[in-house]
């Protein structure tokens, strides 16, 4: 069994990294939103934070928000804010997760079912 389940990160650090905002500016970015950098070699403005740089570099290829957060060792909520910024700046494309309102369609469920059976 793994003890130490409750990881504690300094709220002050999170606050500073995200420039005082506690959550993403838009709620379109979810934990499983897929992220991909646009033109990753194009330089970012000089004022861009190290964490924004790191996230953009991490997303040179397709990766979900939660994976990027895990590899960067930052809280998901913080990386959500960073990703929103980069999407706003046109540097990151987000492929949205399944929308809550419309939900899952039967085709997708069947695809998941077939995929699991194939692995079996």
């Amino acid at each position: 069994m793994s003890g130490g389940d409750e990881y504690r990160d300094s709220p002050v650090r999170a606050y500073v990294i995200t420039d005082g905002r506690a959550r993403p500016s838009r709620n379109t970015i979810g934990i499983d939103t897929l992220l991909l950098a646009v033109d990753p070699d194009k330089p970012l403005p000089i004022t861009t934070s190290r964490q924004h740089h790191e996230l953009l570099r991490m997303c040179r290829r397709l990766l979900s928000l939660v994976e990027a957060a895990a590899y960067l060792e930052l809280p998901v909520s913080v990386v959500g804010v960073l990703a929103s910024d980069l999407v706003d700046a046109g540097r990151l494309v987000a492929r949205p997760s399944i929308p809550e309102a419309t939900g899952l369609d039967l085709n997708t469920l069947q695809e998941v079912l077939d995929g699991l059976r194939r692995l079996r």
């Binding site: 934990i31 499983d32 897929l34 991909l36 979900s64 492929r95 997708t108």
Partner: peptide
């Protein structure tokens, strides 16, 4: 790169 959506 072909992946368009995530389900959980």
């Amino acid at each position: 790169d072909t992946v368009q959506q995530a389900v959980k």
